[in-house]
Design a binder for these strands. Sequence first.
DNA 1: AAAAGAGCTGAGTGATCACTCAATGCTATC
DNA 2: GATAGCATTGAGTGATCACTCAGCTCTTTT
Lengths: 201, 201
Amino acid sequence: MSRATLHNRQDSLERALQLFWCKGFHATSLKDLERALDMRPGSIYATFGSKGQLFQEALECYARLALVELERTLDIHESPLAGLAAYLRRLGGLRDQELPSRACMLVKSLLELGEREQAARDKAEALLAGMEARFIERFATAQRAGELDSQLDPTRLGRRLQAEVMGLRSFAQRDVDSAAVHALAEDMALSLEALRVNSVA
Amino acid sequence: MSRATLHNRQDSLERALQLFWCKGFHATSLKDLERALDMRPGSIYATFGSKGQLFQEALECYARLALVELERTLDIHESPLAGLAAYLRRLGGLRDQELPSRACMLVKSLLELGEREQAARDKAEALLAGMEARFIERFATAQRAGELDSQLDPTRLGRRLQAEVMGLRSFAQRDVDSAAVHALAEDMALSLEALRVNSVA
DNA sequence: AAAAGAGCTGAGTGATCACTCAATGCTATC
DNA sequence: GATAGCATTGAGTGATCACTCAGCTCTTTT
């Protein structure tokens, strides 16, 4: 019966993600979205409901991709601590990649959104909590594996790491050269590796 | 001859700063500013030129206040490293104060502004570079005072500290309780103090 | 080929955006 | 009290905002 959809939903979502990640919520207009998705307003609203709902879906899509990326990096390292350090070093290459923004979209949203966009704000908040939880989990694993002093608190370490990532990525958004970002990531990775029990060296 | 000005310029600027810091550039409308400054559009434009120029002045005002605050904290500590650690610990109390935002306005601006607001973006960029320079300077002083290993690079340490502050303040913007922010700041302060040569402990 | 049901279109909605300017208000000087 | 001159006003500018919906197009079913 029905007409076939012209646009793939996931593909449209990823295009919207690029835009929102790059320009933020407020600076992205429906005109921008129409252009990027090659869709007319009616189709956008029929598919995604509203600009706010589309943004929230984009946030979820972003966090999903970010988590996959994190997981992939962690998986190729047997040692939990080495995996987390590798994740930091990967972020050191932020300025070398072609990305919509060097900064984390969740942090951008957390800082940009106000009470009027409460739902999206809550979504960003929740997704950040999810990332934090993953970090904490990994530190707990490291502790069970004996890589980490049993007196250290995985929760504090996880939050610390999240703050480091937030700082690293915000710093990378500055107009600094690639080497400075690499050096910063390296310093952070070294600090993290210094937590290893048999590396008091 | 002329009529006396009704509004104190600096006072108006600080009101605008509150608004911009809280809501960001895009989400702050002229209606909001008219209300907060108790000025009609004509007066605002006669005094500040445009929304963008007013924002830039607010950025400068913010950075001036932030630098004074940093300087005050550094001044009451003889040891450069102790001063920087105290600055971090002060930021640990972010959630306990009544502020427009826990996050740094310069970082918020850096993440929010795009090419269309290039001038304000450049301003935020420059002011962040100024803060970084102050951090680096202090690490260099610590090194000359023998508090810091001569092999360490004050520039890298300064950038690292700026990234830590960015991360701490962004993290504080999350919906976490005050204790978590205090703990995070404490952990960062301890890391910084661990750089002291005679504290290998 | 007709009908039915879905997706798509794009001109148009009222609201709000940043901003302007002719008129007016106020004060200091003569 | 008249004049000069800057500060202030606020209704109004065109542009853009997010969003709607009646009509159309396309595909499948009968």
